[in-house]
Simulated scan of single mutants.
Amino acid sequence: MDAAKLKALGLAVIETETAALDALRARIDEHFVAACRLMLECHGRVVVLGMGKSGHIGGKIAATLASTGTPAFFVHPGEASHGDLGMITPRDVVLAISNSGETQELLTLLPIIKRLEVPLIALTGNPASTLARAANTHVDVGVDREACPLGLAPTSSTTATLAMGDALAIAMLEVRGFTAEDFALSHPGGSLGRRLLLRIDDIMHTGETIPQVRSHAPITETLHEMTRKGLGMTAVLDDQDRVIGIFTDGDLRRAVDHNVDLHNTDVASLMTPDCITVRPGLLAAEALAIMDSRKINALLVVDEEQRLVGALGMHDLLRAGVV
């Protein structure tokens, strides 16, 4: 089979599934609104049920809901009838997924769900199905045809169901006022979590590990402090422990270029005065943005009285995974 034929087959699938998604526009209706309201009024969790490919889609929908501010989890219907149904409480909402609406494992659970008086949302491709009729609200995710040329493999139908699940989840996110920081709290191990949760207090050098010298210190003493602390710079303090400047590797190179007598010069003569400082509590990502914009590799952290409380280098951000 030549390349053109393979491309044509792939394109046909995309076009079929695109048409299925486009048809969903009309399904964002009062039934969709009713489903949203049931989830918003839920004081427990959204319990997602589905068999086979609908089960795989259901797992993804549950995960998306949970990570965007709507507590949810997936329960396999087959396991539910053998004990896992105990996971469902009267405070929950059930979201049941079945393209036909006649999946036997789901229908078996309907009497129990009704007895618990748990609201039921159905996502099916058949509004006249048993599951749809039993639900408090039914969201139609039916498609004209599957992308599979045999009309057998769930393709367009699963794509449409997944998209509708995303629509429900994001509608919930917006209404709940779910923020990027809220999202990060449920993803602390990812790059987003590091950008939105990690603060400089968690990674900065403190106490004896902060490079610091007095303004009258000779350059030789200053270089010893820089070498010992390994940050390529040192804070310069006045007699009240307030930061008045910073001395960096760059300041040292400039002094050497100008043939400055390093043995008989104090650091205050060569430091960079009025250096950039930040306050504790700053997000590490914001500190990185400051370093990038100012083309610097280190920051001094000071309190309200300009007293030194920490030091942060670019390598600290690298080790923390912020960069």
Rank of each mutant, 00 (worst) to 15 (best):
D144F: 13
I170H: 00
S98W: 01
K114T: 13
E105W: 04
E105G: 10
A147D: 14
H138P: 12
L107D: 06
A184P: 09
T179V: 08
E181M: 04
P111M: 11
L109M: 08
A128T: 15
I112S: 14
G177N: 09
V143R: 10
A160P: 05
A169N: 06
G189M: 00
P111G: 12
G101F: 09
A147I: 11
A167N: 04
A135R: 08
G142T: 10
D144P: 02
V175E: 11
H187G: 04
P154H: 09
L116I: 03
T130D: 04
G125A: 11
A167V: 07
S186Q: 10
T159C: 04
S100A: 12
T179H: 07
L152D: 05
P188E: 03
A169Q: 05
A163T: 03
Q104I: 12
N99Y: 14
A160I: 01
V93L: 05
G125E: 02
L116V: 06
S129G: 05
P119N: 06
T108A: 09
P111Q: 08
F178Q: 05
G142Q: 13
T130Q: 11
P119I: 10
S100E: 06
R176H: 10
T179P: 08
L106P: 11
D144Y: 14
L152N: 06
H138D: 08
A122K: 11
A134P: 04
S156I: 01
R115M: 10
S186D: 02
M164F: 00
C148P: 12
A128P: 00
L109A: 10
A167Q: 08
S129C: 06
L107F: 06
G125T: 05
R91P: 00
E105C: 09
G177I: 04
D92M: 02
V175W: 14
A132M: 11
I97K: 01
T179N: 04
T124H: 12
A134H: 03
L131E: 06
T124P: 09
A163C: 13
R91V: 01
R115V: 03
T89M: 02
N126P: 03
T103S: 15
V141S: 13
A171D: 05
L168Q: 02
G189W: 01
A171P: 05
T89D: 01
S156W: 01
T161V: 06
P90W: 02
L123K: 08
G177C: 08
V141E: 11
E105A: 07
A96S: 12
A147R: 13
M172I: 03
R145G: 14
A153N: 11
E117T: 13
E174C: 01
Q104M: 13
S191D: 06
E146Y: 14
L116Q: 09
L110V: 15
A132H: 10
T130N: 13
T159D: 03
L107E: 04
R115N: 14
G142F: 12
V118W: 05
